[in-house]
């Protein structure tokens, strides 16, 4: 799906990406992991072919340097922070990108629906919360249903609950068969989403491995579906959000994303608020054991 051969990119004298190569199969998910300034963002931009670089990148066999436009049509991109014109309205913004992606107004509406932003079309971009902006960016990235999603620190500007939301959305996309490439410096995201990690340092590839090898004892995020009494979904969601959990309401029930080692916490919180949990179910089962996670989602 994606092939990166000896990519090198230098800005004046600073080498941001130094002779990086990797390949990624369709449906794979890959994290570029490293500290700030390791060259993750630059690598992602090379992948998108937005500026010249040495080496080559092909996306579905298409050279991004020669046919960048076509290559990018297979990629949905989510930037670190949504960069829309602040004065523009949400509806107009997504329609603009819909036009660039050659999809119709209906698809734009579907995309907004999918990220729960319907009804906000008249809002100006500057009035959106960070989470809404990120969801809008996701909606844009998904406009033409591209096979590849590329994300640059997708959660860095979000609070904990927003982060959970995004991570969960991405997990669904991955499960739906999308190829995922993202830059991150948060181990929890990497563990939750990536099958493969490329560790970068000063532009160089240090290790090409899997999250479980990199953090064998790390507790990943799991999503729990709670089955509650009729009509208490809304109030339960409010209570959980109050407690700092990432909550997601859909037709089937209420989903909470928590770290593996804290699965009981939402139930306890709800119990305290006298909301009865009839049942719960763990949606994702990432094989990982241990409970020594020093970082978690909340």
């Amino acid at each position: 799906m994606i092939q990166v051969f000896h990519v090198t990119k230098a800005f004046q004298r600073v080498v941001a990406v130094d002779d990086l190569s990797f390949e990624l199969e369709q449906g794979g998910s890959l994290a570029l992991w490293g500290s700030n300034g390791a060259g993750k963002t630059t690598m992602i931009r090379c992948l998108l072919g937005v500026f010249p670089f040495r080496g080559s990148v092909t996306v579905k066999g298409i050279d991004v340097k020669k046919h960048g436009k076509q290559a990018r049509s297979f990629i949905g991109y989510v930037p670190q922070e949504l960069a829309f014109h602040d004065d523009a309205r949400l509806g107009a913004s997504i329609l603009f990108f819909a036009r660039l992606r050659k999809v119709g107004r209906e698809d734009a509406a579907v995309a907004l629906d999918a990220v729960g932003l319907r009804g906000h079309e008249r809002k100006r971009v500057r009035d959106l919360s960070g989470g809404m902006k990120q969801r809008l960016a996701l909606a844009v990235a998904l406009l033409a249903d591209p096979p590849i999603i590329v994300l640059d620190e997708p959660t860095s500007n979000l609070d904990a609950s927003g982060r959970g939301e995004v991570v969960e959305s991405l997990a669904r996309l991955r499960d739906a068969g999308k190829t995922l490439v993202f830059a991150s410096h948060r181990p929890d995201e990497v563990v939750s989403l990536a099958e493969r990690v490329i560790m970068m340092e000063r532009g160089k590839l240090i290790r090409d491995t899997t999250p479980s090898k990199l953090w064998p004892a790390y507790a990943p995020v799991q999503t729990i579906r709670l089955y509650l009494s009729e009509g208490t979904d809304e109030s339960a969601a409010a209570v959980l959000r109050e407690a700092g959990h990432a909550v997601n309401l859909n037709g089937h029930g209420l989903c909470v994303s928590v770290s593996r080692n804290r699965k009981a916490e939402p139930v306890a919180v709800l119990a305290k608020a006298s909301i009865i949990v009839r049942d719960f179910e763990v949606l994702e089962d990432i094989p990982a054991d241990g409970n020594a996670g020093s970082e978690d989602l909340t």
Binding site: V110, A114, V115, H120
Partner: peptide, 20 residues
């Protein structure tokens, strides 16, 4: 132009509903 109304059935790739 009014933003088109789309039936929920047309929603092909629900990406987790946020708190709309």
């Amino acid at each position: 132009q009014p933003f088109p109304n789309v039936l929920p059935t047309k929603v092909s790739h629900t990406i987790g509903r946020g708190r709309a």
